[in-house]
Design a protein around this nucleic acid. Sequence first.
DNA 1: TATGAATGAGCATTCATTCAT
DNA 2: CATGAATGAATGCTCATTCAT
Lengths: 205, 205, 205, 205
Amino acid sequence: MPSKAAGQPRTKPAEKRRHDLMKSAERLFLKKGIDQTTIEEITHAAGVSKGSFYLHFSSKADVLEALRARFVQEILDGILEEVGKKGEHDWHGKLTAWAKTCAAGYLGAARLHHLVFASAPPPTREGLTRNALIDSLTEVLAGGNRHKAWFLDEPSFTAVFLFNALHGVVNQEGIAGNDGDRRKLLRNIEEHFQGVVLQPRSHGL
Amino acid sequence: MPSKAAGQPRTKPAEKRRHDLMKSAERLFLKKGIDQTTIEEITHAAGVSKGSFYLHFSSKADVLEALRARFVQEILDGILEEVGKKGEHDWHGKLTAWAKTCAAGYLGAARLHHLVFASAPPPTREGLTRNALIDSLTEVLAGGNRHKAWFLDEPSFTAVFLFNALHGVVNQEGIAGNDGDRRKLLRNIEEHFQGVVLQPRSHGL
Amino acid sequence: MPSKAAGQPRTKPAEKRRHDLMKSAERLFLKKGIDQTTIEEITHAAGVSKGSFYLHFSSKADVLEALRARFVQEILDGILEEVGKKGEHDWHGKLTAWAKTCAAGYLGAARLHHLVFASAPPPTREGLTRNALIDSLTEVLAGGNRHKAWFLDEPSFTAVFLFNALHGVVNQEGIAGNDGDRRKLLRNIEEHFQGVVLQPRSHGL
Amino acid sequence: MPSKAAGQPRTKPAEKRRHDLMKSAERLFLKKGIDQTTIEEITHAAGVSKGSFYLHFSSKADVLEALRARFVQEILDGILEEVGKKGEHDWHGKLTAWAKTCAAGYLGAARLHHLVFASAPPPTREGLTRNALIDSLTEVLAGGNRHKAWFLDEPSFTAVFLFNALHGVVNQEGIAGNDGDRRKLLRNIEEHFQGVVLQPRSHGL
DNA sequence: TATGAATGAGCATTCATTCAT
DNA sequence: CATGAATGAATGCTCATTCAT
């Protein structure tokens, strides 16, 4: 009867349900903390029945996992896009793009990141020391190394160093209250990042 | 009454109890996570009765708070001592001392730090963006500024940046497996710290 | 519409469904217990959708009821046929036929019987003390009484006695592992049945 | 202060609590069925808090297990006492004592027995085909065999046979409404037991 | 101080049943 | 006839906290 395209799932697109649930969970986790949020509150906020939650997630930890995955993917997509726009050999540009895009992504979801990566019991040993974002930064740093843009002994070490530094400064309460603050923050990050890669190396002294 | 050395002022058994409980709590929190650790397990491991726990702490969050305070105090004591040994105007030396002592302190308790500062819901305003350690680092950076050892626009920003960077690299699993790794890690940290404070301030001027 | 043999009266697909469902239910009830078996498992095993279950049965208890009814009917049919073959007055023959046929029927479905009659909360008044099988045995015993084949004070008491005895011995794990065991079991049952009806009625007279 | 003997448990004798819980559980299981009885109802009926239940039992199945064990032990104790009173070689007397005591024990708790042995998911393969009561009956039957009181091919088979027969007749609703019925029932059981052991053997015919 | 039995609020999870399609 | 997404009541179990002794 409806003019909807055929193949439309019977009741509600599962993706929509899943998304609603994740959105409610995110909002509540952020507002009251993970432990203080009950499944019932999540489903209630999503306008779904309690049982439906288990049609889409197997447990509270499972939503968290989904939130984590989505968070990383979104930031990463943005980063890759911006970094890709830079010239083939513009490694300083790439690094700056990485830092700024990552920071910008965080500024819109810093607390969420803290929540899913730091505040929640780290599912594996991953989190702030090993994840897709760090991998991507490592690649940029290694690329700059190969093209003599800078000379880092251990790009992976520096990646962890910078990633955590960025995470820390962006995560500061009210750090980007207005556009001016925000611009300043991004410039500060950029400068600190450059400072690190441009550090005068004194190996073996 | 007992035959113990007479006159001996009963060596604060309360302190001992408190200490035992904190030790057990720390061990268990680290091993199984905070939520997964019950008061009963803590008291059992400490060889105390469940009720006694409440003679020394008001809640589980309270032990965490105590753990946090003790952790900061100990690291801080070490840092201040080392930094104090440096010459009045040796700011690079002070910064390096800060970084190395802090890192060294972490290496012995990185996971504990992560636990009490990042993994547990920040009880007060402390955490990875504002705490006594960052304050102390800010002082060193501001001092260097005042004495022209370096020129940082915002020492507090840089302090948060470096503190988190350090926290991140030190928190890596197996990062300091042997003495060689450890030395290398400390030198890497030192160099990165120096890179940051020595960054050429020219971008965007 | 389909190319199936035209005119063929669509062979009651409903009966087939019902049968499939009962078969799955029986298998699962036996394997995991009634409570531990979910409707979903039953329908899944039967290759039917969950909703379809309710097209054929009104509840889990309903399948059980159907299983029970079918079980009794099948055993009873077999018993009546065998008992009917015996001569009009061959009461010992009838009793033996009853015992052997009933036992044989059980041996193929002892656990099912236990499940539907003993393990599940007796839905109606049936069970191990009153059911169609016992009624049929009571008739045989009363018949033997009337024709002086034996002299039982209370055929109905003896029927319950024998029925439960038979149920118990047949229900033993691995009691009829091979044909030899099986033959021996049936002979044992026969002898014990005869012993009961032939008991010298003299005690306490 | 109280004159109670020292060593008295602080609050309430654990045994008492456990007993109260078992009593409530038994009553409720019998009245509403096992599945239909919630832990909360049990504790409420016992005048204990819900949590206390888990201080004494690990689950609902655990109480059932305890009920089972206690039931068997009590019946068994009674049986052994009565059987022991009989003369060394009075095997018919022993068998009759066994049957009567067991039946009498059941009459006081037949439904409980049915509940814990038949109605509840048999924990192991035990229950009506293998348990301490059957073992004890087997011993009596084997003893009579050895002393030529009777000649049974397989005492263990006969024990299962008789045990189930007894269980069945005793388990009949309203079978022992008054003393007359009861006496009659016991005599019937006795006679049927004797009939079985005295059956004329026709081995190998 | 120390104990540990007792408490009971709190929550995740299951699953029989319904019903729109 | 068939489907399976949606429902939400029902319940077992945990554990921080209390308190009589």
